[in-house]
Design a protein around this nucleic acid. Structure first.
Length: 424
RNA sequence: GGAGAGAUGGCAGAGCGGUUUAAUGCGGCGGUCUUGAAAACCGUUGUACCGAGAGGUACCGGGGGUUCGAAUCCCUCUCUCUCCGCCA
C-alpha cells in the first residue's frame, strides 16, 4: 500500500501517474486527505485529554497516600467526564483510521514514469527479442502430444489423483523437471543469490504482507482446518521472511532465491489457454527476490532482467522481453517486465517470467525497513521479484521447439543435470 | 491428541495495582585513559503517531474488561516450550 505521507506530499503526481493504470484516483485521494486531516485533529485533542487524565490520576494517587480521602474522591469525580470524552474521541479515531485504511488499500501502486499508458496486453512495449524461432515440419506436435508420445507427462493420471491441472511427470519427464530446478538454482547462486527452501503453506499475516489477502484469496488454496494458504509463488514466504524487519544499510543488497511448487486455483480459466502445460493448478518455479534501497532498486530491476535473459539464452529458446503497459500491470507493481518464450508447435508466446519492482508498496505492508546510517531513521526498503524461471511453459517450449525425427533434444547446458541428451 | 509451563526492550532477565520516564546484566554507540588495542571507568541506547517547537500520546504476544490509575487483576484468542502418545 501507498503511504499517507507520499499521498500528502505528492498528491498531483499520484493522481497523474495512476491514470496510466487507468485508475481515476482524484476523488478517493481527496477523501483520503480529508480523513487524514480529521485523524490528526482528533489525535491532537485526544492526546491532550489523555495527558490531563494521566496527570489527574497521579494526583489522586498522591492524595490517597497522604490519607486525604475526601480530596481524592472529589478529584475522582472530575475524571468521569474526561473519561467519556476520551472514550468518544478514541471511538471516532478508530472509525476514521479504519475508513482511511480501507481507502488507501484500494489504491494501486503508482507506476514508474517510464510505464506506457494502455489498456491491454496489445499496448505493451516490446523491449527486445532474442533466439531464433525454429522452423518445424508439418508433422510437428504440440507438447501435450509429445508428452504422451514419449510418456513424459500424464495429465489423465493427475485427474485421477487430484483433478485437472495437476499433471504427473514420469521418467525422463520427471528428471527434466528436477534438472531444470537445479539448473535454475545454480544459475541464481552464481549470480549471488542465497538459496532458501521455505514452507509451502503460509498463514494469514504472510498472505497480507505480500498483498494476496484480503482481496485475492480466491486465487489461493485454503487449508481451512488450520487456516493456512498454499503458496501461489515463492514470493510470498520468501518476502515475508523480512516482514517486521529493520535492516542495516550494510545488509544490502539482499538477494534470495527459492524453488517451490506453486498452487493456483485459477478459477474460471478454460479453453486453449489451459491445454497441456499452459496453465496448471500446481507447477514448479524458481523465484528470485531482492531487497534494495530506494536509490538503486531500478538498477537492480535491470540486473534481474539481464540475469533471467541470460538463463533463457542458455536454454536456446526464442524469447521476447516486454515492458507492461499501465493497464496490464499488477496492482502492486511499479514497473514490470514480462519474459515470453515461443512455443513453436502451438505457435504461441508463453509467459515464463515476470520481473517487477514494487518499490515500497509491499514493504509498507510488510513493515520492512532499513536504518539510515546518517539520520538513524528507518526507511521503507524496496522489494523486487521475478521468476527464474517457471517450469511448465519452459518445458512446453523446449519439447516443441527441439523435437526432431530422432527424438527431443536436450539443451547442452541441461545435459549435466538430466544425464541424457535426447528424449526418445 | 493428553498434561503442564510460559510470552516483558537487540538478547538474557526482574517487576505482579500508583516516583516504572520498565530494574539489572550482556550487546551496540559515544567518550576518558592508551603509541595502538584490550581492560577499567563515564555517558548513551526502542517503535509509531501528534506537534513549528517545547513537549505530548500509545505500545510489556493479540483483542476485550475491571479501576481515578494496569506490564501487574479478570475474560478470551494466538503462539512458544517441556513431558507423554502417535509418526517420516
Amino acid at each position: 500500500m501507498l503511504t499517507i505521507n507520499f499521498l500528502r506530499e505528492n498528491t498531483k503526481l499520484a493522481i497523474e501517474r495512476l491514470k496510466v493504470k487507468n485508475f481515476d484516483a482524484q476523488s478517493i485521494i481527496t477523501v483520503i486527505l480529508g480523513l487524514d486531516q480529521q485523524r490528526r485533529d482528533i489525535q491532537t485533542e485526544s492526546d491532550s485529554l489523555q495527558a490531563e487524565m494521566n496527570q489527574l490520576s497521579k494526583e489522586i494517587g498522591n492524595l490517597f497516600k497522604q490519607g486525604k480521602q475526601t480530596e481524592a474522591n472529589e478529584a475522582k469525580e472530575k475524571t468521569t467526564s474526561l473519561k467519556d470524552k476520551i472514550k468518544d474521541l478514541t471511538t471516532r479515531l478508530d472509525e476514521v483510521n479504519s475508513e482511511l485504511n480501507s481507502l488507501i488499500v484500494q489504491l494501486p501502486n503508482v507506476p514508474h514514469e517510464s510505464v506506457p499508458a494502455g489498456k491491454t496486453a496489445d499496448d505493451n512495449l516490446e523491449v527486445r527479442t532474442g533466439g531464433a524461432i525454429p522452423v518445424l515440419t508439418d508433422e510437428a506436435l504440440p507438447h501435450w502430444d509429445l508428452a504422451a508420445k514419449y510418456n513424459l507427462i500424464d495429465f489423465e493420471l493427475g485427474n485421477k489423483l487430484t483433478g485437472s491441472g495437476f499433471p504427473v511427470y514420469i521418467g525422463q519427464g520427471a528428471r527434466l523437471q528436477r534438472a531444470l530446478i537445479n539448473f535454475f538454482l545454480d544459475e541464481n547462486l552464481k549470480a549471488g543469490y542465497t538459496e532458501y527452501l521455505p514452507p509451502f503453506m503460509v498463514n494469514e499475516d504472510s498472505g497480507f504482507g505480500t498483498g494476496q489477502l484480503p482481496d485475492k484469496e480466491g486465487q489461493m488454496y485454503h487449508v481451512g482446518l488450520d487456516n493456512f494458504y498454499l503458496i501461489p509463488t515463492a514470493e510470498v514466504p520468501v518476502t515475508n521472511i523480512f516482514r517486521d524487519v529493520v535492516l542495516n544499510e550494510s545488509d544490502f543488497p539482499v538477494k534470495c532465491t527459492a524453488y517451490t511448487p506453486c498452487f493456483r486455483r485459477e478459477a474460471g480459466s478454460y479453453g486453449k489457454d489451459v491445454r497441456g502445460l499452459n496453465r496448471l493448478h500446481q507447477f514448479d518455479k524458481v523465484e528470485i527476490v531482492q531487497l534494495r534501497k530506494p536509490d538503486d532498486s531500478y538498477l537492480a530491476l535491470e540486473e534481474m532482467v539481464s540475469h533471467v535473459e541470460a538463463i533463457v539464452k542458455k536454454l536456446g529458446l526464442p524469447y521476447r522481453i516486454i515492458k507492461l503497459c499501465g493497464g496490464d500491470m499488477s496492482f502492486t507493481s511499479a514497473l514490470t517486465y514480462d519474459f515470453e518464450v515461443f512455443s513453436a508447435a502451438q505457435k504461441r508466446w508463453l509467459e515464463v517470467s515476470s520481473v517487477s519492482n514494487f518499490e515500497s508498496f509491499q514493504a509498507n505492508r510488510l513493515k520492512l525497513r532499513y536504518r539510515n546510517n546518517e539520520t538513524k531513521k528507518t526507511i521503507l526498503a524496496h522489494t523486487l521479484n521475478g521468476s527464474s524461471l517457471a517450469l511448465p511453459r519452459i518445458v512446453a517450449s523446449l519439447l516443441e521447439n527441439n523435437q526432431t525425427a530422432e527424438g527431443i533434444k536436450i539443451p547442452e547446458v541441461l545435459v549435466p543435470y538430466t544425464g541424457f541428451s535426447l528424449i526418445k
